[in-house]
Design a protein around this nucleic acid. Structure first.
Lengths: 240, 240
DNA sequence: CACTTCATATAACAGCGCTATAAGTGGTAG
DNA sequence: CTACCACTTATAGCGCTGTTATATGAAGTG
């Protein structure tokens, strides 16, 4: 009946909780579901874990540790901006991939009980920023920058989670990510952002025209023309 | 016994829920507590509200509406950056002030049930950004910028909430706030498109875009598209 | 063997969100 | 004044939750 009768009950509980938490479509997971799937009775759960939250904490820690291990395995590259980008994207991906785990971690955040794992993720970012700071590539202190980036990263991930999967627009993530990077790094040392000069005036003008057209009902174009026109403007606006 | 026996039960329920939610130190608030404090029985609650979440939604909406009203009351100033700063700070302050309400709004965020109020707060930011976009002061489309800023704002607020009150460092907020502003606003461009009149700004932007497009070969549109696009721009430009 | 220690099970408690059913209330029509 | 009707509130209870007091079994040690 249970997940695997060979394994010790503690492992089976963890596996059952992980599975249920992963597949639960936003509905809460009960201890009875878990113990039933694990083929164990209630007191066994409370023998191995302090309470339900303790079990969930273990699940979350295990899941996030797996992600962290993957991130840590990546060498610290020569380009800290690229490193930060990868950490950011990995964070978002984890949140979208294991939504329920992520919400257990960040959704029910409370002053007294913050999973220690969160601090570790922040440290990963801080490490990269530290290297950049030593090389004189940072405009702000690395610890503060790391916290700031993490905060934005969490906010973006939560906002993407809040959107139904088909409406999700990952541009929100990349845009916010690059905004934070741009604000934190000294841009001169890196070429990524130094191209736009000529093109950016097109983009700025397109954005301005787009906004102006939408707020003033112009009679110069038919509505179907306007629709197509706005779509093109949007395409130009969104290009970098 | 209840909050005020004169008032109608619906109001008393709202008051009781608000009070309990405000004072509950991170422990969940039960319908039984609410109905007891309001001096009514359970079915009364479900007659006036769909369910517990419906009642909480009403409480949150009322609380946030109050904050929104305060923000809306502030005129749209001449300086959009200052406006955005004020909206950001107000958001953070609300989160720290009414932590429980805030966590009900943003903490238990789920794909299917996002309070409509959140979108309104986003709109407030978007309005300011739109004005800036018309004036050519934005580097990115205003809608996307608004969502990005809101995401970071929520992330920062949650992170501050997660910290115990005495350790709280508001610099995290101001720094992230200004990072986002810096990334979104075109701070030099105040002179370029500074004609705020509604109709003519369309024309000015169209002229600018027209000129910019012709001098830079954009790859975002095919040549035939570009031709039609430029003709429309000409039509708008010539319509003063 | 006796004894302790750990792990699991039985059965139950108090609390939860919620509702089927019914009783009371006030206004309106006959 | 009575009869009805819509609206609002109450009684009582269902099925669920997280959790635990108590008891039973199994394993290792003297």
């Amino acid at each position: 009946m249970g997940s695997n009768d060979q394994l010790p009950p503690k492992t089976r509980l963890l596996q059952a909780a992980t599975e249920l938490l992963a597949n639960a479509g936003s509905e809460p997971v009960s201890t009875r579901q878990i113990t039933k799937l694990a083929g164990v009775t209630a007191p066994t759960l409370y023998h191995h874990f302090k309470d339900k939250e303790g079990l969930f904490d273990a699940v979350v820690t295990a899941g996030f540790e797996e992600y962290l291990a993957g991130e840590r395995a990546l060498d610290i590259g020569s380009n800290p901006i690229e490193d930060i980008r990868r950490l950011w994207d990995g964070h978002v991906q984890f949140g979208l991939d294991k939504t329920n785990l992520y919400l257990v971690m960040f959704g029910n955040i409370r002053p007294e009980s913050r999973p220690a794992i969160v601090a570790e993720a922040e440290q990963l970012v801080a490490d990269r920023l530290n290297r950049a700071a030593i090389a004189g590539e940072l405009k702000v202190p690395p610890r503060e920058a790391a916290r700031s980036i993490m905060a934005a990263n969490v906010g973006v991930t939560l906002m993407l989670i809040a959107e139904s999967a088909e409406r999700r627009n990952l541009e929100l993530s990349t845009m916010t990510r690059d905004s934070m990077i741009q604000a934190v790094f000294n841009e001169e040392a890196h070429a990524q952002f130094s191209e736009p000069t000529n093109q950016s005036s097109v983009v700025v003008a397109a954005i301005a025209l787009n906004a102006a057209l939408q707020s003033s009902s112009s009679s110069e174009l038919s509505s179907s023309e306007l629709e197509l026109f706005l779509e093109w403007l949007h395409r130009i606006s969104a290009s970098r």
